[in-house]
Every structure is written in structure tokens, then in C-alpha cells.
């Protein structure tokens, strides 16, 4: 049955309209969880607020388990789901540069749009920076094209790498996530700050 657009159950224009509605849900969930706050986002890296860790990993494992269940009941054909390709060096290099941007700027692209929507001026400045960064990447592309396309490994899943089932890998990821949640809860008590209020009440 799913994905609806791939199986031509809905038209391309309906797909775009639903993208808008899905975006509303995404933006609402980000904001209601306080992802519009750069101090909350940065808090994960100092331990005083690990909400991001909890929301982010709960979201990832709920989606991973949900996809497996839906495929079990034939509600979705996983072979039609887009899998991000792996280019080893640019994946890691891009991630390192993004990590530096995260700790300096306090947002990622999605959360900066969410924060800008409620009037955060630092988020608007961050968004302006993203525009500049993408423009630099495009204009200078011939300089890093080789690195960008190096070490292409196809689109492997973790289960392919370890030669096991998607179900077992998902189960192990859930265990790892539970361990991280425990560390997060501990850190919030240990690194609590007087000048910062949790849950931005």
C-alpha cells in the first residue's frame, strides 16, 4: 500500500500538499519540545539539558520499529523507501563541519527554521549563515568535487554491514538508546544550572 506516491495512490501534487502538512507536524513537534531554543539544543553538549538526545533518539527508534511493523503487515514496501547513499569521506567530513557549526551556532537547519518562526533573531542569523555556506559550497564545488564523491560504498544498511537482520539491529539500537537515556537523565541532575530553567516554562 505505502508509500502512497510511489504506488500512484496519490498524485504528485497531492504529495506536495501532504509535504506541507507533514512539515506543519514536524515544526509543531520541534517547537513544542523546545527545539526552538538554542540553549536547550546546546545543553546536550554540556549535560544541563539532554531533551534533544531523548527526543531525537526516541523519534529514530519509533520510526525504525514502526517501519518494520508496517512492512510486516504489508502496509509499506520498504524497497521503495529512499536509503541515503554512503560516501565515506564526505559523510564524515560533512558531519565534522556540521558538528562545529552546531556548537558555534546552537542550531541545525531544521531547528533554526522552527526557532525563526517564533521570532528568535539568532536563528534568523543562523539561517542567513546557512545560505552563505551552501552558496560557498556550490560556487567552489570543483574544488571539493573529488572529496565529495570519494569512497562510494553504495547504500548499505547497518544490517548489511553486520550480516544480520534489520530486526536484530533495531533491537540493539533500542538497547543503546536506553543506555543513552539513562546517561542523559543522570547528566541533567549532575550538570544542572541555576541560570537555566528546564522545559523553558
Amino acid at each position: 500500500m505505502g508509500p502512497l506516491v510511489v504506488n500512484e495512490i496519490i498524485t504528485e501534487n497531492a504529495n506536495l500538499f501532504l509535504a506541507f502538512l507533514i512539515g506543519i507536524g514536524f515544526g509543531f513537534v520541534l517547537e513544542v519540545n523546545g527545539f526552538s531554543s538554542s540553549r536547550r539544543l546546546a545543553g546536550m553538549f554540556y549535560g544541563y539539558d539532554t531533551t534533544v538526545l531523548k527526543v531525537f533518539f526516541t523519534g529514530a527508534i519509533v520510526a525504525a520499529v514502526g517501519l518494520l511493523f508496517m512492512s510486516l503487515f504489508n502496509w509499506i514496501d520498504l524497497s521503495y523507501i529512499y536509503i541515503n547513499p554512503t560516501y565515506l569521506w564526505s559523510s564524515l567530513g560533512g558531519g565534522v563541519i556540521m558538528g562545529a557549526g552546531f556548537i558555534l551556532g546552537g542550531y541545525c537547519p531544521g531547528t533554526s527554521v522552527c526557532a525563526a518562526s517564533i521570532g528568535k533573531l539568532d536563528a534568523m542569523a543562523f539561517l542567513g549563515g546557512i545560505v552563505i555556506g551552501i552558496f560557498i559550497f556550490i560556487e567552489g564545488f570543483p574544488m571539493w568535487e573529488g572529496f565529495y564523491n570519494a569512497k562510494f560504498l553504495g547504500s548499505p544498511l547497518l544490517s548489511d554491514i553486520f550480516g544480520t537482520s534489520r530486526g536484530l539491529i533495531t533491537f540493539l539500537i533500542i538497547l543503546v538508546a536506553l543506555g543513552m537515556f539513562w546517561v542523559g537523565e543522570w547528566a541533567e541532575k549532575h550538570f544542572a544550572r541555576d541560570d537555566y530553567k528546564l522545559n523553558q516554562k
Partner: peptide, 15 residues
């Protein structure tokens, strides 16, 4: 914030 955005924008394209 602007510097962080530049890094993130560039890194998102590379990655």
C-alpha cells in the same frame, strides 16, 4: 550564529 550557520550550511552539502 552566522559563523555556525556557514559551517552547517557547507557541511550539510558535503555530507
Amino acid at each position: 550564529a552566522v559563523i555556525g550557520g556557514i559551517f552547517f550550511g557547507f557541511g550539510s552539502q558535503l555530507g
